[in-house]
Design a protein around this nucleic acid. Structure first.
Length: 1079
RNA sequence: GCCGGAGUGGCGAAAUGGCAGACGCGACGGAUUCAAAAUCCGUUCUGGGUGAAACCAGGUGUGGGUUCAAGUCCCUCCUCCGGCACCA
């Protein structure tokens, strides 16, 4: 430090420069002040300071799971976006609800506890502290007074309470909504409803006709025993106990997700995993399948997310059909979307898990069943997880069951096979196989030599068949038939002749002389006949010589490979066209080969054929129309410690009872050891808390039972999703102890459309967002929330990636071990070997993780916020480039220098008169930034601000160290600061205060702009000749079409180019350009 | 395999069918400075052309199409990213 010999330094030229240290001082000071003054504490309706005249804006971030690793640069991306919107909306006069909390139950904390023995509550609380500290350093305008975590007993009390609402509700199909189960009991007691033997509810007034024409055992409530009543009601509940097959790993003592099981062994440790059926709580989300799919279509959500949800729900329309077993009692029920192909069902396939398979294995065995082979196949198939079964789906496997079923349409016995390409989880775990019209069935049929029959043809194929079966003798002649067929197909397609007209068309062809050219010759679009006849030449569009129909069809016929007329006829007679031509025909068309003495659908189009088959099935009682969904009920039990306990206890007979509402929450018992015990039997973790587990009706309490009744608590816990399903509701009224939120708070903040803007990652596109919608709809049905959907507008921020470096052998080099000796060339420091720069997710192993704390230390929070928003479009994934941040920091420095004297730290003297150019630029800026914020286009808003600050003091070269504050008046400076405020709130507050204001700018009105100021008196237009810019003209902004045209044509360069040409057309686009078409 | 999304300078990117590359980074040149940092100014798609300009030609993954006009709309193919995967 001491250097007496050096000459004295001149005074530090910029004692008051905006740098990281100053940014840190400004930022923490303002954060303290906002906290101290409660600037962003938002009152609820009815509370002091609440202004009911303002509209509301509820803006929510997906709350984070606070991991021990702390905040990641991905987190603040979405949070900065919502913060900008919220600050903007406050300035636009909205009451803004902008809360933050913690999704804190979950596996990582539990696994950490297993390793270290530290209680998850402790590690989770520490992680929350870290997260809160890190978030607050960004200066986000959250109302921290509303903060909570899902692990707070005061919160999960209400999670349990909502679970009990599901438990106490049923889905009323007639009303198409959930209702309290007490209503159902009432209706049953009054005798309004009765119960069919299959457990369905029907109005007692009209007992339904039997499916099989036999009398039906519809029963009334009073005819049921206590146990029957209980069993019936339990089957109706939205929360019910069901049996699910799970992956149980005895060694780890836990259930594993499919993705954690690899080749029948656990991913962690490689221990054996068994498929075990387990009784668990399920939530009946399937009851809402229709509404969840329908309502998804109307939301302002990303198209991709809506599509994913709709496909996940997977609605399909079809029929449920019973195939009676041949030679024994019983039937196999299948679901099909193509009942019209029933005549082509030449075998059946049941899943290895199908109940019938157990019967076969248990029974004496059918005459031709190889029970041993079946046993082996089934055991092998069941051991494999669904994922693995699907992985090698190409090669079909299966085994004959020894049984036959009767195809109800043809009356023919067809074999029943067992194969794992049929899944128990969808439909009824059994299919009717129609190999001519389903690729999978075809592959299976070919593998095992099963019959394949066409029952649907495209119109062209049908015409071909008509020709094969009905062509008059002369047309069949060697040498003639191909041309005749080509002409016939040409005529049918070009004239769009429907099947009833085939006879007449044939007569037309037959009446021609053999050598006569085809009079229908005309253009044919290859795509048209490609869709009509897949597999034909030209189906890919290449062979379609535009032009001659006959040639086209000759090509097509040749590709199909018929060698003679007899060959053609034979293929159709054997109903084997599709297989020979191109594999399974899965499209719609016309039914064929589909007649019996009971039913004929030949010639019907697919939709009508479906209707006819369904009508017939319903008439004879062998099937019915059915809408099916891929969506399955939600498995809601976890054999974990760190989750919400269920408010349920079981009595000695195993019947479940709800804990009294008034006694909630059921607290999570303390455990000392979080290691799951090794066990062959799946056992939930909480069973280890023996004192807690065993209780009585008085203690639990369950007031519907005698007080001394012994009870065993439900020892499973709820899944991670439970807490995140409704947190947005609690934020409306987080400290309410009488309700999960007051109706008034919900009515105000949720309104009729819910959250106004919800931002979070697209990885939650299906599960969280679908589960939350489901809970919301249940609460809506029960009258507990005012709107049918949780969020009107949803947006997914993109992922922030980072650079990673690959050696030539593709192995990865940590980012901090790489040098860039020259631009674009990267070498590994240790070896000097060149490496390739790639873009990858941030991960510890790549050592390319950016820590927000470090970035803030280097540049300040305002700079980091600005950079994250400036990187690119919010929804795009984009790489973090440390080199680019400095641009945003310099921008803030320039803003500072524009208004503050760096020598003294005091405001620079403002311009005394407004420069009209600056004023116009400011209006343009205001006009751009507002709408850009509304559409979340922060990158372009920031670019506009950067552009603006170049205006004042620019032009005239007032540059140099002096900057150019003399270019801005006080009023202009203030308006600019307000525009900047949502993006860099700390700096803006500091400037605002230095400009002489003592109150926060958070509620200052957003500056207005005058549209008249956006208009220039003259505009420069580009002049194009034939679409190429050849010059520019300057015309009055309000110049009319004719004068603009005149000016353009008078432009010397234009005159030169159109010399000797005729001006055919002049296009004038006002304010943009003129295009002269000459030739 | 299927369904999404995306391919634009050296890099991040911008562009209601209307002058491609705004804005930022980097690079290069200059000013300031004893010097540096910082700051300020200028240049920066490619090729041709010029002392410098003007100007000319080409250019938004590929090939076609629609249009007075295409990064943008339509079709083909290629590549990358994300999701789903025998759903009867």
């Amino acid at each position: 430090m001491t250097a007496p010999s050096t000459p004295p330094h001149p005074p530090e030229p910029a004692a008051h420069r905006y740098d990281a240290q100053r940014a840190a001082r400004i930022e923490t000071a303002w954060q303290d002040r906002w906290a101290r003054e409660g600037t962003f504490v938002t009152p609820n309706p009815g509370e002091p300071n609440f202004d009911p005249s303002k509209p509301k804006f509820y803006c929510l971030d997906m709350f984070p799971y606070p991991s021990g690793a702390g905040l990641h640069v991905g987190h603040p991306e979405g949070y900065t976006a919502t913060d900008i919107i919220c600050r903007y909306k406050r300035m636009r006069g909205f009451n803004v609800l902008h809360p933050m909390g913690w999704d804190a139950f979950g596996l990582p904390a539990e696994q950490y506890a297993i390793q270290t023995g530290v209680h998850p509550a402790k590690t989770t609380r520490q992680a929350i502290e870290t997260f809160r500290r890190q978030l607050q350093r960004f200066g986000f305008s959250y109302d921290w007074s509303r903060e909570f975590a899902t692990i707070d007993p005061d919160y999960y009390k209400w999670t349990q309470w909502i679970f009990l609402r599901l438990y106490h509700s049923w889905y009323d199909r007639a009303a198409d909504r959930a209702r309290p189960i007490a209503d159902l009991v009432g209706a049953l007691e009054r005798g309004d409803l009765a119960i069919t033997p299959s457990g369905d509810l029907v109005p007692a007034s009209h007992a339904p006709a039997s499916l099989l024409g036999e009398p039906v055992g519809v029963r009334l409530w009073h005819e049921l025993s206590q146990d029957e009543r209980r069993a019936f009601l339990d089957r109706q509940r939205l929360a019910f106990v069901g049996e699910q097959t799970v992956n149980w790993c005895p060694r780890l003592g836990t259930v594993l997700a499919n993705e954690e099981v690899i080749d029948g062994r656990s991913e962690r440790g490689g221990h054996p995993v068994h498929r075990r059926a387990l009784k668990q709580w399920m939530l009946r989300i399937t009851a809402y399948a229709e509404r969840l799919a329908r309502d998804a279509a109307g939301l302002d959500w990303p198209e991709s997310t809506r599509t994913m949800q709709i496909e996940w729900i997977g609605r399909s329309e079809g029929a449920e059909i019973d195939f009676p077993l041949h030679g024994r009692d019983g039937s196999i029920r299948v679901y099909t979307t193509r009942p019209d192909t029933i005549f082509g069902a030449s075998f059946m396939v049941v899943a290895p898990e199908h109940p019938l398979v157990d019967e076969i294995l248990a029974g004496p065995g059918e005459a031709d069943a190889d029970v041993e082979a079946i046993g082996r196949y089934v055991a092998a198939a069941r051991a494999r997880a669904d994922v693995d079964r699907m992985a090698d789906a190409k090669e079909k496997t299966g085994v004959f069951s020894g049984l036959h079923a009767l195809n109800p349409a043809t009356g023919t016995p067809i074999p029943v096979w067992i194969a794992d390409y049929v899944l128990m989880g969808y439909g009824h775990g059994a299919i009717m196989a129609v190999p001519a019209h389903d690729e999978r069935d075809l592959a299976f049929a070919e593998r095992f030599g099963l019959p394949i029959r066409d029952v649907v043809y495209s119109r062209t194929a049908l015409a071909m068949r008509h020709f094969a079966l009905h062509a008059p003798e002369p047309l069949r002649a060697e040498g003639r038939w191909i041309v005749a067929l080509a002409d016939f197909l040409g005529l049918v397609t070009t004239e769009s002749i429907e099947p009833p007209g085939f006879g007449r068309a044939m007569a037309t062809i037959a009446s021609r002389r053999a050598d006569e050219p085809d009079p229908t010759t005309c253009h044919i679009d290859p795509a048209t006949y490609a869709t009509e006849l897949p597999g034909a030449a030209g189906a890919d569009g290449t062979g379609g010589r535009r032009g001659v129909t006959r040639l086209t069809w000759l090509d097509a016929i040749e590709t199909l490979g018929f060698t003679s007329f007899d060959d053609l006829a034979e293929r159709f007679l054997a109903a084997g066209f599709h297989r020979a031509a191109h594999g399974a025909f899965e499209a719609t068309g016309f039914a064929a080969n589909s007649s019996s003495d009971q039913l004929s659908i030949d010639g019907l189009r697919t939709p009508e054929a479906k209707e006819a088959v369904i009508a017939w099935l319903e008439r004879v009682g062998l099937g019915r129309r059915r809408v099916n969904f891929k969506l399955r009920d939600w498995l809601f039990s976890r054999q974990r410690y760190w989750g919400e306990p269920f408010p349920i206890a079981f009595d000695a007979r195993g019947h479940h009872h709800p804990i009294d509402d008034a006694a909630l929450p059921v607290l999570l018992p303390d455990l000392a050891d979080f290691r799951p015990p090794e066990s062959d039997d799946p056992a939930p973790m909480l069973a280890a808390a023996r004192d807690w587990l065993h209780t009585t009706a008085a203690e639990a309490p369950v007031s519907t039972l005698p007080p001394e009744s012994p009870l065993r608590r439900e020892a499973n816990t709820m899944p991670n999703w439970a807490g995140s399903c409704w947190y947005y509701l609690r934020f409306c009224d987080p400290h309410n102890s009488a309700a999960f939120a007051s109706p008034e708070a919900l009515a105000y903040w949720m309104g009729s459309t819910g959250i106004d803007l919800y931002i979070g990652g697209s990885e939650h596109a299906v599960l969280h967002l679908l589960y939350a919608r489901f809970w919301h709809k249940v609460l809506f049905d029960l009258g507990l929330v005012p709107c049918p959907e949780p969020a009107a507008r949803l947006f997914h921020q993109g992922m922030i990636t980072s650079y990673a470096y690959q050696r030539s052998d593709k192995s990865l080099v940590p980012a901090d071990a790489v040098d860039e000796p020259s631009p674009g060339r990267f070498v590994e420091r240790a070896t000097g070997e060149p490496v390739v720069q790639t873009i990858a997710k941030m991960s510890k192993t790549l050592k390319n993780v950016i820590n927000p704390d470090d970035v803030i230390a280097e540049y300040g929070a305002d700079t980091m916020r600005l950079y994250e928003m400036y990187m690119g479009p919010l929804d795009a994934s984009k790489p973090w480039n440390p080199r680019d941040i400095v641009g945003c920091h310099r921008f803030l420095q320039k803003v500072w220098r524009l208004l503050i004297d760096e020598q003294t730290g005091t405001p620079r003297p403002p311009a005394s008169a407004a420069d009209p150019a600056v004023e116009r630029a400011l209006h343009r800026l205001i006009a751009k930034v507002g709408p850009d914020i509304e559409r979340l286009a922060f990158n372009t808003a920031i670019a506009a601000m950067m552009e603006f600050i170049k205006t004042p003091g620019g032009g005239g070269g007032g540059g140099g160290g002096a900057g150019g504050a003399e270019g801005l008046t006080r009023d202009q400076a203030e308006r600019f600061v307000l525009v900047l405020a949502p993006f860099a709130p700390h700096l803006a507050e500091e400037l605002w205060s230095k400009l002489g204001h003592d109150r926060t700018l958070a509620f200052e009105p957003w500056p207005a702009f005058d549209p008249a100021m956006l208009r220039e008196s003259t505009v420069e237009l580009a002049v194009q000749v034939m679409g190429k810019v050849r010059g520019h003209i300057t015309v009055p902004a309000d110049a009319d079409h004719a004068s603009v045209e005149r000016a353009a044509l008078a432009e010397p360069r234009v005159r030169e180019l159109i010399e000797g040409k005729t001006v055919r057309k002049v296009v004038v686009v006002p304010g943009k350009l003129v295009n002269i078409v000459a030739g």
